[in-house]
Design a protein around this nucleic acid. Structure first.
Lengths: 295, 295
DNA sequence: GCAATAGTGTCTCTAAGACAATATCGT
DNA sequence: ACGATATTGTCTTAGAGACACTATTGC
């Protein structure tokens, strides 16, 4: 049963004598887009607070991109998977480990890291604000939860030979008290007879390190897509929540308003009602729900 | 504007003196799942041929996994992206370059390659049988287009503390004249209060190298998912095709029968009718369509 | 009572499922 | 004429969008 290769070696013999060639290898890192939802300050008494979608960024303390903000991340070790590396980073950075974690995309543009050849496998994590202590950082001047806004600025469709090219330009705005980062990201879809390809490019970028504006854009689009056909948004909710709060989270993710009746029908199977209600709200109390673990 | 780091260096100075550390780096490869559709031999005169979904595999000529079949792939070079590496492999292997190419997932299980630490960024390509010459290989005894079948064998749901674990077991069968490879792949979805995670594992595997059964399963699931809400299947069609042929392609991908009337309504916006018809079919001729380049 | 939110009812419109009826070729 | 496929029609059902109406609290 032991097959021999051209040199007459068995597989075991081959592996014993195997030496890693000295061709060049990249560093492989993971970068994480960690989302959570927070409450804004309510405008007036008895009004419900607005929800805000936020992601965690870290200010770089060394070159390259010193002083710029970057996604949390780090290099993958030989004894772990990229997913384990991402979970490790997440735990180090936020102290949380039971979260929704999902691989996004692997970025490998030549020159994306000016130091050396680095390929980044990006992940998205969703945390509810119960789990993580915001602003509580110790030396936290260099770690912050930025409010996210991602809006389509314009789109253009250009006909070419055997197809067309469609360009969508988005503005990504990340803000905290006293600081605002803005990046413009293009998504270009080239449709030809036999192929369709999509590429992202950074048009301008103020304050974000590396190609992280692309990674964040990619994460937001994934999140927006999945919100519509999965229960992914429930990972951003605390244990108990009202349907209005859930709807606000959907709205802040999708950046558009939803109809109440239709929304409640839609999420009906994703949640379970409890016997608890909100109190002292200045208006009619609301039933509290929890995530359904059925299906 | 030139910020200095702790050592008093500007970014330029830092990059000039930067040396790659000697911590371990992985090799990064791309593996490609290349799909196409072929016609089976028709049973009788005047019957339409059935469609078959196929992928390209290469028989390994050296250790490890000598004699087993593997996905085409190769290592990524420092001057190219993973996508360019995939396109290069595809072109070398099939001679085709204007195809639908899409990143799937990055696999990094420890020990997935017995030689050394290899992380694989997998891609899926869709080509139509017009573009590639099947069976035409020169030294093609070691390259073959395997017919694909991927079926759910059973599913189980087990309740655990704070959630449940759902396991779906699939049989992946790859066959050519005189050879059949079978792998059993489990997809396990663990749903807990704060997290949902999905993992694939290979239960048994007869004839496929590395973890390629997982990669193929991942590709088929992506293809099945996208067929329902994109025009991705049209990349498997020749320039001109009948709606019945298109329906057969959908059916062989999804492994289930569709209703004709509903199917035609659904794909109506994805195709454009032409003035051509099939001829000499032994029955009523069918209008030929082409892929729509609108939307 | 009033402001604000909670929760439900219903009409319409669209898309999908199911099935049937008719059309048109090659032999 | 017959076998096989092509193409269209329509009834039903499910879901989303739109909008309106009633309910309930704290102040």
């Amino acid at each position: 049963m032991d097959l021999l290769d051209r040199d007459g070696l068995t597989e075991r013999e081959f592996l014993e004598q195997y030496r890693v060639g000295d061709y060049e290898r990249p560093s492989v890192a993971t970068d994480m887009v960690i989302f959570t939802v927070t409450d804004a300050e309510p405008d007036s008494y008895r009004k419900l607070p607005d929800k805000e979608l936020r992601i965690l960024l870290i200010r770089r303390g060394g070159h390259p991109f010193i002083g710029k903000w970057a996604l949390p991340g780090g290099f993958v070790r030989p004894d772990e998977t990229t997913e384990q590396a991402a979970a490790r980073e997440l735990s180090e950075e936020t102290g949380v480990d039971d979260v929704h974690l999902e691989q996004l995309y692997t970025f490998s543009d030549v020159g994306r890291d000016p130091r050396t050849w680095v390929i980044s496998c990006s992940y998205m994590a969703l945390i509810n604000s119960d789990q993580v202590q915001l602003q509580a950082g110790d030396d936290a001047a260099d770690v912050a939860w930025f409010k996210v806004s991602y809006r389509l600025l314009w789109e253009r469709k250009e006909l070419i030979k055997d197809g067309y090219v469609k360009t969508l330009e988005y503005e990504l705005k990340l803000s905290i008290e006293g600081e605002e980062l803005t990046a413009i990201v293009d998504r270009t879809v080239a449709v030809k007879v036999n192929s369709t390809s999509t590429t992202y490019s950074i048009v301008s970028n103020d304050g974000l390190a590396f190609d992280h504006a692309k990674i964040i854009a990619c994460a937001i689009e994934r999140l927006r897509g999945k919100v519509n056909y999965t229960d992914i948004a429930l990972h951003l909710m605390p244990q108990l929540f009202t349907l209005t709060e859930l709807q606000q989270v959907y709205e802040v993710i999708l950046d558009k308003e939803l109809l109440k009746a239709a929304f409640r029908r839609k999420v009906n199977d994703l949640v379970v009602e409890t016997d608890h209600y909100t109190e002292n709200a200045g208006h009619r109390p609301s039933r509290l729900y929890r995530r359904s673990l059925e299906d």
